[in-house]
């Protein structure tokens, strides 16, 4: 290509590219996908399957579904879950039965792999859609999932 030809060709390719950006410059409003994140917190809805952290739902009587079976602890690949359990006499049957003392969850180590949720036989835990987990100290990320004074729902068995 001649010297002048190359200059013309160069300018033409530059203009082709600039036509693309120019198009967006004038009709950008239609294709904005940026979200004004902290300002739009109220409208922000995460997808229902989004994995944010492990939580244990309780009903209005402060009852949960966790029997303390430790299946989630075994399924967890990195030891994020620690189960402290004990046995006590069941009033109805009179037999000694396992119950959960503390379901300790280390959010700081959790990789959100969902294996514990799948492993739980009684669906006692689930994934919450919360993703704002920054805190000032790592110790805040160690949580006890069963609320103080909570007990097992009726009719749940291992």
């Amino acid at each position: 290509m001649s010297y002048v030809g190359e200059i013309v060709h160069g300018i033409r390719t530059l203009l082709t590219g600039m036509a693309v950006t120019g198009k967006y410059f004038f009709r950008a409003r239609k294709e904005i996908i940026t979200q004004q994140y902290p300002d739009n917190r109220d409208q922000l809805r995460m997808f229902e399957r989004f994995r944010g952290e492990v939580v244990m739902p309780h009903n209005e009587n402060n009852e949960h579904r966790c029997t303390g079976c430790q299946a989630c602890e075994i399924a967890c690949p990195n030891g994020s879950i620690e189960i402290i359990w004990d046995r006590k006499v069941d009033e109805k049957t009179g037999k000694k039965k396992k119950y959960i003392v503390k379901h300790i969850y280390h959010l700081s180590m959790c990789t959100m792999c969902n294996l514990c949720i799948i492993a739980c036989p009684t669906d006692a835990i689930k994934m919450a859609q919360n993703f704002e987990n920054s805190v000032y100290d790592r110790s805040y990320l160690t949580k006890v999932l069963n609320k103080p004074g909570s007990k097992l729902m009726d009719g749940i068995d291992e």
């Binding site: 995460m46 997808f47 989004f50 792999c113 994934m127």
Partner: peptide, 14 residues
């Protein structure tokens, strides 16, 4: 977004 809705995570889908 497709990944997040279907698999539950954007990058580490598992």
């Amino acid at each position: 977004d497709i990944m997040e809705e279907n698999c539950g995570a954007r990058l580490t889908m598992n």
